[in-house]
Design a protein around this nucleic acid. Sequence first.
DNA 1: ACTAAAATGAGAATAGTTATCAACTTTAGG
DNA 2: CCTAAAGTTGATAACTATTCTCATTTTAGT
Lengths: 124, 124
Amino acid sequence: MNYSRQREIILNTLKQNVVHPTAEYLYDVLKKENPSISLATLYRNLNQLAENGIIKKIDGLESSSHYDHNTHDHYHFICDKCKKVFDISADVAPDLVKKAQEETGFTIMGSDIVFHGICKNCNK
Amino acid sequence: MNYSRQREIILNTLKQNVVHPTAEYLYDVLKKENPSISLATLYRNLNQLAENGIIKKIDGLESSSHYDHNTHDHYHFICDKCKKVFDISADVAPDLVKKAQEETGFTIMGSDIVFHGICKNCNK
DNA sequence: ACTAAAATGAGAATAGTTATCAACTTTAGG
DNA sequence: CCTAAAGTTGATAACTATTCTCATTTTAGT
């Protein structure tokens, strides 16, 4: 993977983002500072960054993928009402991967763990 | 939800299926016995059955959704090589939802828990 | 600076799924 | 058992998210 200005911008934008944005959301943000950036470039780079373990692609949330600059082991929660995505600490299930591996005998390389329901704020 | 012959056929076909099929796979199977069934009818009914908790839609596996007639609490593993989907018992993380709920204070209505890696067979 | 490999932007193409709509079924009430 | 309202169907158009193509530009090593 060579250096590329666009990839740097994309990664920085994702890092500065508190939410877990979709490509569409990122594209809107990126275009403000870099009107010439192409959607294909964005997708290409998000995929490359994810393949290299620099970011994480989160599937299973909605019809579109979300992206996370936090690659530490943790889970996600999406509110069915406001669609906001929250982090859940991996502490709620220590050794989950290890145990799953022991039970199945499979080599587990990754996981997508997504909860959904109603967040505190929407519950009021 | 009224009775419909097509829905019954779709549900039965899913129940008889040991794998966790995609809509495409189900459609191919269904057409053999019911050549006139429409793809739209299949998707409509899978969504309705899932909304009513009769089946479960599994997202986060591949670009397309898979469907599961087993609605008991359990997780999934997809082999990155052969793309087969396996069940993992929820016993590997007892009270996972309860703990996540305690930690976050959110009302958790469901979860999608997907592991991926290499299955026993492909590991040989 | 020169070259090969990698990356870009623009837009076309693809895949999976949902929407539309006229015709047909199902259901509940009289 | 008839009817009207509500629900469902098949066919196909439309949509959305993402990937592909390709000519041009950028990067990295010599």
